[in-house]
């Protein structure tokens, strides 16, 4: 810690080339499923209601992947296309992972231009603050171990 203070670690170039060629939907389905399994029950119902009907895009820059999902009936649902998501996040896979593991500070990544957020600032703040409220120690523990193993000299 602080993982965010280190230089951004990017996936190898070929990963991006492959990612761009993959169909978007399977990745979005997997991501929405993971959200439903790990986060849905932890999200306060009133927050899910405020996000109802909105589409979100998560761009993993170095993987060449854009994950799209919508909140519907308090669930995360994968989406194939979205004209204008309410929020679009852009970062590399490593930075998303350090955020999820609570090893990086989102504002710091934002100040460093490593996390780009486009769209409705109020919803962005609601999402950020709600994620900060949620404790998922087991998932975070696994992520931290993966990050340690993936870091240079880790193993």
């Amino acid at each position: 810690m602080n993982a965010a203070a280190n230089a951004p670690r990017k996936l190898p170039g070929p990963v991006r080339a492959v990612g761009r060629r993959l169909p978007r939907m399977p990745a979005s389905i997997a991501f929405a499923t993971a959200l439903n399994l790990t986060l849905r029950r932890k999200f306060p119902a009133d927050v899910l209601d405020r996000l109802e009907g909105h589409t979100f895009a998560i761009v993993v820059e170095d993987a060449g992947v854009e994950l799209l999902f919508r909140v519907r009936a308090r669930r995360f649902v994968p989406v194939a296309q979205a004209a204008e998501p309410v929020l679009r996040f852009r970062a590399v896979a490593w930075d998303y992972a350090t955020l999820a593991a609570r090893e990086a500070d989102p504002d710091t990544l934002f100040f460093n231009r490593r996390l780009l957020v486009e769209g409705d600032t109020e919803i962005a703040l609601l999402v950020k603050n709600t994620l900060d409220t949620i404790d998922i120690p087991r998932t975070r523990g696994i992520l931290r171990r993966v990050l340690r193993a993936a870091a240079p000299g880790g193993g």
Partner: peptide, 10 residues
């Protein structure tokens, strides 16, 4: 107070 738990911890 608007910052993350990581900020507070550090």
């Amino acid at each position: 107070r608007q910052r993350s738990p990581v900020y507070v911890e550090t």
